[in-house]
Each structure stands twice: as C-alpha cells, then as structure tokens.
Simulated assay, not measured.
Amino acid sequence: MKSILKITLPAFIGLASMLTACQSEPEVGTPLYTVAETSNLPKLYIHDLANQGNKGELNVVNANGELIVKKDTVEFYVRLSSALDKDLQVSVAENPSATKTDGAVALDKGAVNILNPTVTIAKGALVSTEPIKVVAQQGAALDTLLTSRSNGAVTLTLNAAQGVDVASNYGNMNITINYKESNLVDDGNTDGLTAMSTSDYWVVDGYNSAVNQLTDGSTGAYNMWWNYVSNGPFTFVVSFDNPTLISAFEVLPATGYTNWTVKTLTVETSKDWITWTKQGEITNSSANIANANPFVVRFTKPVNCQYIRLTNIKANFSEMLVIGELNVYQ
C-alpha cells in the first residue's frame, strides 16, 4: 500500500522559509563571502636602532628674534623584510597629515630638507646602502615656531615602491624640532674675536661692590675671587663706559681650583641698567672643566650693551665657587 505525504499549505510555507533562511547566510570563505588575501610581498619599513620608535630630533634657537638652525642631522635606514632579486629604489616625503604633535606644532612642508630623499636597497640586501639624511630648513614653515614659541613636529612617510608593500606600523619617521630661546652658543669659542683691555670694563657684585680680582690679569690663588656656595646664588655685572658691541666673554678657572669653577649661569644685558634683556642660560661642560679650559660664553648675535649681568651663578663644586678672571671680547 502506497503512502501519500500530505503537506498542508501553512506547513509548506514554513518549510520553504526554513530552507530560504539556511541558504541566505553562507559561511565565510564561500564565493559570496570571500576572505581578503594577505599580501605575500616583502615589507618595506623604517626601523633603526639609533632612532628608537622611529623618532628623531633637530634643534633650532631663537636668538633675539632670529631663528638659528643648529647643525643637527637625523639619519635613518630603510629596510626590507626579505631580499629581492634586483635593486630597489625607495624614497620618503614630508607628510603633514600623518604628524602626531604630542604637544608640538605640526609644521607644513618645507620645515626640513631631505638631503637624499631616495636611497637604494641593493639586490639580495635587507638594508639601504646609505641612510636618509634630514636637516631643519630655514623658511616660512619653520618660522612658525617664532610665533608658537614651542617645539615643532614633522613626519616623513615611505613612498610606495613596485613589488613591495609599505609596512603599516613602520612607514613613518617622526621628527621633533626642539625650540629654544637663547642668544648663547653652546661650547662656544673666541676664534676670530679681539680681547678687550681690562681697563675698558669693570666688574661689580650683586651689592654693587667692585670685584677687582676678576680684572687684575691673574688667576693665581692670591688674586682669585671665591665664596661659599651657601652664600649664593651670586651675581656679577660687567660695565662699560658706553654702549659697546660685545661678542663674548669668558670665565677663567683659578689656578689649582679648576673643579670649583662656574657650572651654570644666566646672562642678561642692558643699555641703561633699567631694562634688561635675557640672552639665555648656559652650562659649562664637564670636559671643559676637567681640562681647566675657560668657560666661553659667546653670543650668537653680538649684543650692543653697556652692562652684562651674570645671575644665578652656580658652582661645579658643592662647597665653594672660585673664579680666576673674566675676559671680554669684541
């Protein structure tokens, strides 16, 4: 006896709906839901042990309204995750849209000069044959710092190259341009300058008392100036008969008391003893002190003044400050 399957209309509709639902959500990997392929191409990236986190630094100084670019260079290599069977030329370019400021000002294109924007990774090699070199560059983009009076930020990005992919996390070099306001040259010298006669200037302390030991021409123990650090901080003022264009001055250590010399000081200048202009703060290097060399304070731009005030003078030694002589240069 043959069985006859009877399906009512409501049951048939329910069955059709179930079949349709099962067919509407194909699994990932089917032709309807393809999986994005991961590229097997070698990865191009920036990662240099000398630049932790792909970060570099350049320095500029605002010297009385003029932005001075320091002689710094950021260098970094470009790398491949696996070698190619041919030479590969790779390049970088400024990319302001990718700049992360971290409190600095994002600078427009032109703030830096990429000295060699294109380098080569040789056949079979993983690293570019030479580093990319970058320096700060004078111009409108960099002059933004004169207004913001803060650090600047620049980002360089790897350009695409045929046959490779740029690694997503290592395609940028982030450069901070450190901004400083100072008219003083670090580790300065007196090259090309003329020493003034000690009869053309005199020195007083913070109490306006004459300090003849600093202009007597001797750094010997019987002619040196000294005081206990506990009596500081100390102030000296160098005075001239008339406003004079000054390029530098130097503090000489006393003979036999090298380690007791000046470590740091602040420099101000004035034409009338009323209005003072801060020229900057400066530190005597440890090497300079160890070699008993003069502590040269040179102005980036010579200053026309009648008075030079040295304040916040701190000693290299914890107990005494000892100074042999103070010379002035034009």
Rank of each mutant, 00 (worst) to 15 (best):
I7E: 01
N178K: 03
C305T: 15
G217M: 10
K43R: 08
T266M: 08
N59V: 13
K301M: 08
M320C: 07
E27K: 14
A104P: 00
N231V: 12
D102H: 01
S168V: 13
T73A: 09
N259S: 12
Q213P: 07
T176Q: 00
I274Q: 05
S17K: 09
L19R: 01
L146V: 14
F76V: 12
A93L: 02
T300P: 03
P117L: 00
V112G: 03
S286I: 13
Y228W: 10
Y329D: 11
T311F: 06
V322S: 07
N259R: 00
T38I: 07
V303D: 02
L32K: 14
T283V: 11
N227D: 10
P10I: 15
L67A: 05
T144V: 10
Q137S: 12
L252Y: 12
R149N: 07
E94A: 05
A287F: 08
G56Q: 02
L67F: 01
D48N: 09
L146K: 04
S239P: 05
N288Y: 09
N284A: 09
K301Q: 10
T283H: 01
T144E: 00
R149Q: 08
A83Y: 01
G29T: 14
V112H: 03
M18R: 08
M224G: 06
N288K: 09
R79V: 13
K263E: 10
V164M: 06
I4V: 12
P117S: 09
D241R: 09
K86P: 04
V262R: 04
I46T: 12
D108P: 01
K123P: 04
E325Y: 15
G163C: 06
L184W: 02
R298V: 13
V154A: 04
D165E: 14
T190M: 15
C22F: 13
S199H: 10
G56M: 07
N51L: 09
G65D: 04
G206E: 09
N231D: 11
T277M: 00
G124Q: 14
V61Y: 01
S97Y: 01
A221D: 02
G232R: 05
K278D: 11
T264R: 14
E27M: 11
D102Q: 06
N284R: 14
C22S: 15
S239Y: 14
V61Q: 01
V297R: 02
N54P: 09
V74N: 00
L142M: 02
N288P: 10
A111H: 03
A21G: 10
V135T: 11
Y77G: 03
F299E: 06
N116K: 08
L193Q: 13
T190C: 12
C305P: 08
V105Y: 04
I289K: 06
G139H: 00
L193E: 15
